[in-house]
């Protein structure tokens, strides 16, 4: 007793339901926390700012003189 309409509707509905259900499988990269072992997960440290580091290195080298026997 399947009417043509019913069967098409049912198929569409079933298809729709399937598609709808499948949307649940959608994964966006930003949703999931992937655990990457060994990769730092904390806040940024401004000390790592590349721009300032050469200057800082020079300053530290000069400062080291204080630890020498004068």
């Amino acid at each position: 007793m399947v009417s043509v309409f019913g069967s098409r509707l049912a198929k569409m509905a079933a298809l729709g339901l399937l598609v709808f259900t499948l949307t649940g499988c959608y994964e966006s990269a930003s949703d999931v926390t992937l655990y990457e072992p060994g990769v730092y997960k904390g806040s940024d440290d401004p000390l790592l700012n590349q721009a300032g580091s050469a200057e800082r290195e020079d300053a530290l080298r000069e400062r080291f003189g204080g630890q020498r026997d004068r």
Binding site: P37, G38, V39, Y40, K41, G42, S43, D45, L47, L48, Q50, S53, E57
Partner: peptide
Amino acid sequence: VDCFYTTDDGIVLHDKDL
């Protein structure tokens, strides 16, 4: 929880919040 990191000049630091 990977709260450690090393700076370019070899200093090992960590994030206490983590």
